[in-house]
Every structure is written in C-alpha cells, then in structure tokens.
Amino acid sequence: MPEASQSGSHRKIRVLIVDDSASVRMTLSEIIGSDPDLEVMATAADPYVAVERIRQEVPDVMFLDIELPRMDGLTFLRKIMSQRPIPVVICSSLAEAGSDTLMQALEAGAVDVVTKPRVDTAEFLKESRMRICDAAKAAAHAKFRGVHKPAPRLTVEAKLNADAIIPPHSEARAASQRAKMPVTEPIICIGASTGGTEALREVLEALPATTPGIIIVQHMPEKFTNAFARRLNGICAMEIKEAEDGDVVQAGRVLIAPGNLHMLLHRAGSRYTVNIVEGPHVSRHRPSVDVMFRSASQAAGKNAMGIILTGMGDDGARGLLEMRQAGSYTVAQDEESSVVFGMPKEAIQRGAAAKVVALNRVANEINTYVRTALGAIK
C-alpha cells in the first residue's frame, strides 16, 4: 500500500493517462478514480502534452497508448526511460499484428501491458477494471532502476481459488496417488506476473535445447502471449510457442498459456499434454498460476519442478505449496532480484518454496534438478 501521510490517511498513487481518445481517457479516469488507492493526476492526448504535465508533477505511474499523434508511444517510452524514468503501463488496443510492438515496449522498460477497457458488457468492464487497477498498483510498487519498493497487499473482495477449475484431492487420495505415481520425464512449471516477461527471457535464454518440457503461466492479455512466445522462440535454444489444447509437453519445448484462458497439465501413462480451458478468474487471474500448479501437483507430483517468479498478489502461492506437498521440487525468486516481491513472498511465507534463489540462478537450479531427475530414471 502507499505510504501513510502525516495526517494518517494513505497517499494515493497518482496516475498520468496518455491516450489520444477522449472516451478512453474518460473511461480510464473513471476506472482509476474508483479505486481508493489510486487517483488520476492528469490526462494528455499526446506525448508533448504529457511532457508538460510531467514538468509540473512527476506521476507515480503513467498509462501510455502506443498509437499516438505527433510521436508514437514506443518512441516516447524510450525517450522517457533515457531521460526521466517513470513506471509505465502500456494500455493498448493493438491486435495480433501490433503485438510485437508491445513486446518491444516491455523490452524498452514498460512494467506491464493491459488492453484498453472493454465496456460492452458489465462482466468485461469488471474484468478490465480489476486488471487496470492491479497493474497501476504493481507498477507503482515495482523495483525500478534499482529502487526497491515493497509490494502492496491487495485488500479486495473474496476471490475464487483453483477449486473453481480443478477439484482438490482429499488427503487420502493424494497420499495414494503419491505412492502410485510412476517415474516419468521431469516437467518444469513456471509462474510469473509483473516483471515476468524479462525474467522469463533471462531464464529461458540460459537453458539448452535438451531441457525437459516446460509449461508457463505469465499474466498477460490475450493475443500478446502469442507475440511473447514468438519473440522468445527467436532468441532461445528451446522451441517456444503459445500453448494449444492437446499440445504435448516434451523435451526441448516450452508452452506458454494463452492470455484469458487457463492451462492444465494432463498425464496419460508416461506422456504429458496440456488442456486449455475457459473458466472464471482464479486468484484474480486468467490464466492462473494456481490452476497450473494444482494440475501439476495432481498429474506429475514428484516428477515436477515448480518455480514462482516476480509478480504482485498471491497467485501461485497456494498451488506451489500443493506441488511441494505432492513431492515436487519447488523454488521461489528472491526479493532482491524481483521486480515486485509479491507472489514469491507469499509462497515463501506459506512454506511452499524448498529453495529461494536469485533470478540469475534459476536456470542453474533447473539444470541441477534435471540432472538429478534424469539420473533417478536411469
């Protein structure tokens, strides 16, 4: 949460909105203004107006569109990051064709990407509101250019857990399943949120093409996950793709859950595939790390490794604990290397992580686990 002022009230996170559409500026202002922890500092129709606003007052967070008049958002982002870094959330309606530009924005220093609010139905507006407000808080509390800010706690209405997608096993059934679980090829499961795109790039770039199958949930809007997968596929040794229902999890392949859908691990004999399913938000997210981790605990158990990386909130903490209880090897990213130490912190506090490591040690931890697991098979 923001620091308390001397009067005892919380200091609100001040947001600058940069978008050429008056209706989008108004909708975003209404959404952000409805959250007690947020307020709109100013709005701007183009980067030049935004610069004048920033000269008057530096915002805590800037929501920035990519397609803008007089100067495109990506160019403006790069200028801001080189001259006066500000936590930036890209808010865009770009479809598949423009999603590569959004990946460039993340690489240029943007903290997160959200789609412009949908107001066609009450449900979509509610989902947009939740995602936008969460992104603003995460960005404001992100570790930025070496400055550490503690992750806020989300004080919200009751939220659904993984039970909404996958029924939990009873203790007796879980114990029986662990005893009967056959030894298979190892599976690596990774969950991440704010700051995760660059964290995943660092981890995956360091892994050899022979690495066992990896499944990933990265909180990201639909369509953008495909661009993210394609971008990673071009720089990593492993094959990386957006997961499709029925895809086989196999050595040398990384499957990234598609935005707005849940991904579950499924086992048939010694073979693993993924199921891509619809369903409600779990732990405030779709796809949810908790859903993926629970499915891995039930399908793979001792044959799996679970890793939770940077992100706000607690998605994945409960699921990682279930993985550890099922015999999986579990790892959490440490505070120092996390952009937002929310998800890893929750997992560590629950006793879900067998080991806590810096981001630059995660790939080595995977390689060590794989050698041990493959040695046990032989």
Rank of each mutant, 00 (worst) to 15 (best):
R318I: 12
V88Y: 02
A174V: 03
D120A: 00
T121S: 15
A162Y: 04
K345A: 13
M305S: 06
C236N: 10
V61M: 07
V49Y: 06
D46F: 10
K12T: 13
D20H: 12
L309T: 00
P85K: 09
D247A: 10
S7F: 15
M103C: 12
V58K: 11
I348H: 10
T330M: 10
V24L: 05
L264M: 13
Q6A: 13
V114Q: 09
V119M: 12
S29P: 11
E239D: 08
S288R: 02
I214L: 07
H148I: 00
Q218H: 12
E171T: 01
I66L: 11
I366Y: 04
N303V: 01
E239W: 03
R201G: 03
V339Q: 10
F224N: 01
M220T: 08
D100L: 10
P69W: 06
D19Q: 12
V274M: 02
K143M: 07
N260K: 08
V61I: 03
A172I: 02
A95N: 14
P59C: 11
D334G: 08
G301N: 05
P168R: 10
L64C: 09
I31Y: 01
I308Y: 04
S9R: 14
I86K: 05
G252P: 06
R173W: 13
A373H: 12
D35W: 12
T225W: 01
V49M: 09
S176R: 08
N260Y: 06
V357E: 14
A174L: 15
V203D: 03
A162R: 03
Q104N: 13
P221Q: 11
P208G: 05
P150R: 06
S7M: 12
A227R: 01
I13H: 02
A354G: 15
R53P: 11
R294S: 01
V356K: 13
A268R: 04
I90A: 02
E322V: 04
A317L: 09
A50D: 04
R53F: 15
I377E: 11
V254G: 03
C236F: 07
P69I: 01
H169Y: 08
V254W: 01
A296P: 00
V248H: 11
R145W: 11
A136F: 09
V111L: 14
D65P: 06
A175H: 12
P152L: 12
A158R: 11
E157T: 11
L264Y: 03
A175S: 15
